[in-house]
Design a protein around this nucleic acid. Structure first.
Lengths: 227, 227
DNA sequence: TAACGATAAGTTGGATACAAAATGCCGGCA
DNA sequence: TGCCGGCATTTTGTATCCAACTTATCGTTA
């Protein structure tokens, strides 16, 4: 008789983790905006479970920086102030070039081509949500080959917590086009093709830094939403 | 044995957070070594609560990198491989100089003197545990004035997850003395007194980098313990 | 009228109880 | 002897229930 012991690390997913993924997706997709109150009962009904898995999920998401828990009171989708967003970008300026430079030597030519394809799609699309998704995929994929799992988890966390504000900014300036980002991506790809970790790191650092300065110029991104 | 919650009038800290602090302290103090299995029931009895707050605490600690949670199975104190430790140090080399350079302009002369006192105590003590405690206090205090709460939380997390290995290393080389660390601390203090963020950052980066290379030379730090 | 306070309703925190999965033990079998 | 499989025990995951705290409502009063 076959032994079901193995379960290959991921077959038997606890209900709590499914709820965690579900809520995380709701937040990252924008369905739940920062500041919105999220009740345990409502989520439990929505996912068809009791409140226990929901509570586990909320704690998990709080530690990921996506949820703000106030004891004995409410759970809300985490929101960032302008300085907090800028702070995250300053950290990103330091750690993402490291992730990139450690990843580049491990990338195959096929990987590079796949990245290039995403850049091309970004230039073609007229949908800001598609653009946002491709941008995230492009950058995170460019780090994927780095043998530094903790660093990559940290980077992804920062992308998650800033997701809402990047979306809001992208939508805001969508009309004006974003040729600068596309140009930076092209320069980044060119350096990556040459496997030049120094140039690639410099372009990426500039890219993040310029975005930070751009965001700081738009405090109106932080005014809306529930409190 | 069974520690009952003291009904401190007015203070209303959720039980789960108290348990979190308790377990965290057990791990950081070395009472719970990496790899050791920690059962929910055992902890619940030890803290005089049910398993619910313990589960909350374990989830919290997992996200802090101090606990490894395997679904449907065990919870263990997180352990690091040699490359993981090195990875964390590479991240530290980047972000701690930033924390320091942002903190230095905000430090008062009294703060500087207090830091100096810790350095002096480190040179005097003959107890490696005291040394470890002072070292942590010194560095974290030197970042304390930086107006970057997320960065400081990140730094503290890295100090926590590497705590056990720093302790093991400190004990291992305790006989040989650690004049190098003391010298580096002196140089660091000197740059901080001059409020020279560039020099201070350079010394700190060197300090962390040298420690990383030193740790990598001692793989035997990772052999012991439960698996 | 506006502010204050008591009370009621709703929400969260924690404990107990039960189901499901994993670990360990022990006997059978080649 | 060594190993494999099944059963029992232990441990984790989830649901339900109760208590405590927060928030809202409504009435009272200056």
């Amino acid at each position: 008789m076959m032994r079901q012991q193995q379960a290959v690390a991921g077959k038997n997913v606890p209900l709590g983790q499914q709820v965690t993924s579900g809520i995380r997706e709701l937040i990252l997709s924008g369905a739940l905006a920062p500041g919105v109150r999220i009740g345990q009962d409502a989520l439990a009904n929505q996912f068809g479970t009791s409140r226990i898995p929901v509570r586990d999920a909320l704690r998990q998401l709080e530690s990921e920086g996506l949820v703000l828990l106030t004891p004995n009171s409410s759970a809300r989708v985490a929101r960032l102030e302008l300085d907090e967003l800028a702070e995250i970008y300053k950290i990103r300026e330091l750690i993402e070039p490291l992730a990139l430079s450690e990843s580049i030597p491990e990338l195959s030519d096929e990987d590079i081509n796949a990245l290039d394809e995403r850049v091309a799609e970004m230039e073609r699309t007229s949908d800001s949500d598609v653009f946002l998704k491709l941008d995230r995929e492009f950058h995170l994929s460019s780090y994927a080959a780095a043998p530094m799992p903790q660093l990559k988890a940290l980077v992804e966390r920062h992308w998650n917590t800033t997701q809402h504000y990047r979306r809001a900014y992208t939508k805001m300036v969508w009309d004006r086009g974003n040729w600068i980002i596309n140009a930076e991506h092209r320069l980044l790809m060119e350096a990556m093709r040459r496997r030049d970790v120094v140039d690639a790191g410099s372009v990426l650092r500039m890219h993040i830094r310029r975005t930070r300065k751009e965001l700081v110029r738009h405090p109106e991104l932080f005014e809306s939403g529930a409190h």
